[in-house]
Structure formats: structure tokens, C-alpha cells
Amino acid sequence: MTTELRNTEFHIRARDGAGAEEHGPYELDIDPGRTADGDAAPRYASLRHASLRILRLPPGGSHTFATGDSEWIVLPLNGGCTVAVGGDSDTPFELSGRKDVFSGVTDFAYVPRDAEVRISSAAGGRFALTGARCSRRLPARHGPASGVPVELRGTGNCSRQVNNFGAAGVFACDKLIAVEVLTPGGNWSSYPPHKHDECRPGEESELEEIYYFEIAPAHGSAGLGYQRVTPSGASSRTGRGTDVLAEVRSGDAVLIPDGWHGPSIAAPGHTMYYLNVMAGPGEERAWLICDHPDHGWIRDTWPDQPVDPRLPLYEAPDADLRPSLNETVEAGPRPSLYEAPDADPRRSPNEAVEASPRPPLHDAPDARPEAHPEDPEGDAR
């Protein structure tokens, strides 16, 4: 199969097959779904676990959907909204949202499987619904913007900013892992290329992934970027062999059921944003990755370079003093909803920068003893 044909399958262009006639209010609707036999629907047969919908609401608009067998996070891309879960007295959640993905961290709402959810917006806006098939039903919760760890990864032209709102070990979900990445124009992120397409306990997680892109306009141009995915040994054994070279623009998505992925390249002058949605079949919710053996050496060059001075684009706001709605999940031997990831004694690509008197991006809350161990290789995103 040619790369062009592979792109057709795995590169979902803005509004490609996602018009009002087919998906109602969704600009993008990436949900494997199930046939009567329990198999994935043909259009997204490559995905079994992860879902993404982009919902646009006009001023005063609302939308109701059933969560089915998936858990979801409602994440404002621009604008704010109210999220109500049927039969849940602790909702609705009022999400302040943000102007756009390039201007600030946002609050969000977690909604469980087997529920009916209503999203409404007085002023209108666009909202990402990030989903994962799951077995446990956790309580609906509000995630404050102040609790989102804002992190810088890489240095030099590999510098990027990561908003870890739904990372493993940060916010409690059953299967869903989701983060936002911002890459200044001209930089490479999701680099070195890495994979997480087979289960190797303690070394690699089996996670499929969706990348959703927005590109900041500049000088009257909408801008663009590039995404690469190449077959891995695991993907070759399954016969899938995902192979994508995609020119991505705002509203596009790239599906990554398997394979080495990266780099994600931002065109000079245009900041690239992407939302990562990950989920898999494993019992442990963890993001463990394997670097491509031909390119992993690039990490060794990072301590000798400064972080791109354009970063951070923004930081998390001051602490939200509203009462937490997360205590019911905290009661068991579960990771805390917001906790600082453990330090990685083996590798710190930003060590040279941290040694300077640069203040931290924000103060992370204390980690609990029962915290879920973070990915020791978590610098690639």
C-alpha cells in the first residue's frame, strides 16, 4: 500500500467525512464504535480503545450524548460550558474554559461510562471530548486549571510545552490518558520517534493514540505542520504497519494504532498545538515508551542546550480555592487525582536549565505514597 493510501486511512482532515449530515454537531468524530458482532466499525477499524470528538456549539447551544462503555474528559478548546451528568447531584460543572489553546490552561470535566451527559454553552465554543473504553465507572469530577502540571520537555529546537491534564499519575481515570503539547514554530516535538504498541511489563505499554492538531495563524497565513509515523516490529507482526507522512492543518487528526511516531514538526512562525488521546487494553494505566534506536541519542545532546526562550507560552493559574469533588476516588488505594510525577534519576534532559535560578512553572502538589509510578521515559511527547 502506498503512503498516499495509508494517509487516507490514518490522516483525518478537518471536516473530512464529519459534516453535519453525518455527525451532527461534531466537527470530528473518531470513535471506533461496534458492529452487531462486536467488531470495530470499518471507518476506524484500526482503533479499538481511544476516541475523540470535536464539538462546536453556537451561543446558547447544547448537546446531549450517551457515554456508553467509555469514560470521557470534556476539554474546552475555546469558550466555556456547563457539563451536567444525568442523575448526578454533584453536577453541573461550570467550566470557565479559555480564549483558545494558545492562550492558557483550561479546566475540564470527567464524565463516567454508562451516563447521559449534557453540554451547554451560553457564549458558544468548541470542545474536545477525549474518550477511552473502560470497565470501571468512576465518579464525575471537575478538574481545575490550577491543578494541571505545565511541563517543559526537551531543549533547543526539540523544546515543547506539555499540559498534563489527563496524564497517568496526575488525574485518575480507568483507561484514558490525555495531554496537550505546544511546539513553537520551527521546533520538532514527539522526538525522538517512539512507540508504545506492545506490552512489555515495566518497559512499554500497549496504547493506541490519536493526535488532534491546531496551528496558530501568522501574517495572514493559517499555517501547517507535519506528522510522521513509521512501522515498528510490533506493527509489522500484526500486519498493520502504520505508515503516515501527513501535512497537518488546524482541525486535522492522525490515528496511530501502532508504530514509531514522531517527529511532529511546526512550520517556522506557526506554533503547533496537538491534543494526544491514548488508551489500551492493559490492566495498568501507564505511559511507558520505547525510543527509536536510530534516534534516541538526541536526548544526550539536550543537557548542553537551553530550553527555547519562547517557552512556556503560559503557565497554570493560581490555585483554585473551590472545594474538591474528587474525594470519593481518593478513598481507595488509587493514585491521587493530582500528584507530582516521581523524579527520574536516570535521565533529566532539562537538568542544565533547572540548575539556573529560573523559577518553576508552578508548584506541584505533594505526591502521595500510593502514587502510580510515572513513565521513566516520558520525555518524547
Rank of each mutant, 00 (worst) to 15 (best):
V244C: 00
H270Q: 07
V229N: 02
T242Y: 01
A266L: 03
T238P: 07
P231F: 05
H261Q: 12
E283I: 00
L245W: 05
N276H: 08
P306A: 06
P257G: 11
N276F: 07
T242C: 15
P306D: 14
E247F: 12
R285N: 08
Y274P: 14
R249F: 02
Y273I: 06
I265S: 03
S232I: 06
R249Q: 15
V254N: 15
V229K: 12
R237P: 01
N276T: 08
N276W: 12
D294R: 06
P268Q: 08
T242L: 02
W302G: 07
I298A: 15
G269N: 10
R228Q: 13
G239N: 04
R240T: 11
R237H: 01
V277L: 06
T271A: 15
T242F: 00
L245D: 12
Q305T: 06
G280L: 08
V244H: 13
R249T: 14
T301Y: 09
P303T: 15
A279L: 14
G251M: 02
A246W: 09
A234C: 13
G251L: 00
E247R: 13
V229Y: 04
L275F: 13
W260M: 03
D252Y: 10
M272H: 13
W287P: 02
S264F: 00
A267N: 09
P268Y: 13
A279H: 14
R228D: 10
R249A: 10
P263K: 11
C290N: 04
P231G: 11
T271W: 06
S264N: 10
G282E: 15
T242A: 10
D294V: 01
I298P: 05
G241V: 01
D300H: 15
H261K: 01
A246G: 06
R249Y: 12
P231T: 05
M278R: 10
